[in-house]
Amino acid sequence: MVTKTLNVSRKHEIKEKFYLIAVLQGMWITLKYFCRGFFLWKSYTINYPEEKRNYSQRFRGMHFISYDENKIENCTACYLCQTVCPAECITIIAEERDPLKNPSGVWKEKKPKSFDIDALRCCFCGMCEESCPKDAIKLSRNYELATRTREQAIYNLDHLKREVKGRG
């Protein structure tokens, strides 16, 4: 196959060919930005650990399981989130709930014995949150997910039942 090259002629004015003017324009722009940083202390970045960005309410971060006023989780171990999860990171083991430890008329006959979310596999799509009929599993706005070991990144039920205000 023979490749053909096509030379497109671009007409430059003499002003454009004499690059110094363009260079000076660029220098003027960077000087403006320099002065903005130097005199006005403006920047687009933040001092991260001290200041934190406020993300939107719809931000999907670390998971949590909501609970009612008696500290009983809303989850009924229906397996919908485990089924819908595209990354297959949710593992639920269900058991029967003791009816004696079920006050205030909340009728939940199943409860999760263990509820593990592997955050290393999770893709934070939010489909578990969408599918949950009890609004139990939710994604908070906490985006600081770093852990020291891989084991810590697998969230168990105790971790998921932590107190999250609003959406975190």
């Binding site: 930005y33 320099f34 403006k42 970045t45």
Partner: peptide, 13 residues
Amino acid sequence: RGAAWIQGRRGPC
């Protein structure tokens, strides 16, 4: 620091 200011960052502070 100047690079940071020109690029709208903070730089070493």
